[in-house]
Computed example of a mutant assay.
Amino acid sequence: MRAFLLLLLIFPVLELFVFVRVSSAIGFFPALLLIIAGSALGVLVMRVAGFATALRARESLQRGELPAEEMFQGLMLAVGGGLLLIPGFISDVLGLLCLLPFTRKLVANRLRRRAEEQAMRQRAFQDDPFQAQPRDSGQRPNVIEGEYERRDK
């Protein structure tokens, strides 16, 4: 929590420092135009990415698959667009990194590996790991479907 608070306090100062350095190198108005162009690109990415993610998710649902990968790609695009919306050069660079396909795949693989490790650790601390075995015998559970009505006297 302290690291997040420290980052929250330092990030605007770093953005301002980088803006002053860039504006002293290329001029104030070109630097300001770059910031505005980055925000406009962020708005465009947010609009297009949301629509494209919804279409890809719908296609994978029609194929009978879970759209986990498509949703993650859409999340990364939304984060990238959001970072582009924030005025500043550091956030723009981070947003552009989120938009690149190979960085999205790299982050997806890292998160998948981390989730698998987490699942393995949780399985290691189960009471009886052999208790929940899948049913291969083809037996159906005893389920009686119906409706009921409660009548109190």
Rank of each mutant, 00 (worst) to 15 (best):
E147V: 09
R112M: 01
L7R: 04
E59W: 05
E117M: 13
L111M: 12
L106P: 04
Q73M: 08
A78T: 09
I10Q: 07
Q126S: 12
E145S: 04
F102D: 05
E59R: 15
G50N: 02
V45L: 07
V13Q: 06
S91L: 06
L7T: 03
R58L: 07
G64H: 06
E69P: 08
F125I: 15
P101V: 10
F19T: 09
G80T: 10
M71E: 07
R113S: 10
G81K: 08
N142I: 01
A31K: 06
G80Q: 02
L16S: 12
S91M: 08
F102H: 03
R150N: 11
G38R: 05
V43Y: 13
I36E: 07
G146W: 08
D136L: 11
V79K: 09
R110S: 13
V48N: 00
R140Q: 11
Q133S: 01
D152Y: 14
C98D: 04
L77Y: 15
A119K: 04
A49R: 02
V48A: 11
G64R: 06
D127K: 13
E59D: 11
Q62A: 14
M71V: 05
S24L: 07
G138Y: 01
R121Y: 09
A57F: 05
A78K: 05
L5G: 05
A54N: 03
F11S: 11
Q139W: 12
L55C: 02
F28H: 00
A54Y: 00
P129H: 06
